[in-house]
């Protein structure tokens, strides 16, 4: 259940940002979860709802956006079909994972500031 340690890192980051900006409250968080990020979105959401109690994120909704994994050719950009051998169907170059496919990203925080 590494989702808990990830949520902890998330909340710590939000607290630091809120402090930096003298925020009175946090209203919304948005996070993007890549399909190959190693994070189960449901577990992450559940972990967040448990962990946020007593922090600046208590009661703050978290919007998770799932990003499907996709591969393409780094040379000629030809997409590689899902589940296929990871080589470019056009030029045989080894494929490359597209941006976001394996990332877990804190996109933004909506804060209330004085």
């Amino acid at each position: 259940m590494h989702e808990y340690s990830l949520v902890e890192a998330l909340v710590t980051r939000v607290e630091a940002e809120a402090k930096k900006r003298d925020a009175i409250a946090v209203h919304k968080l948005s996070v993007r979860v890549g399909e190959l990020s190693g994070v189960d979105p449901e577990l992450f959401q559940t972990a967040y709802e448990t962990f946020r109690a007593g922090t600046i994120c208590a009661g703050v909704p978290l919007t998770l956006t799932r990003v499907a994994a996709s591969w393409s050719c780094p040379r000629c950009r030809t997409p590689i079909a899902r589940g296929a051998i990871l080589r470019c169907p056009a030029c045989d170059t080894p494929g490359k994972l597209d941006d976001g496919s394996d990332a877990l990203t804190l996109d933004g925080i909506e804060m209330e500031v004085p």
């Binding site: 998330l10 996109d107 933004g108 909506e110 804060m111």
Partner: peptide
């Protein structure tokens, strides 16, 4: 008070 969206796009 003011509501501000803070864009971070930062890896957790």
């Amino acid at each position: 008070t003011e509501l501000v969206p803070v864009e971070l796009h930062e890896k957790i």
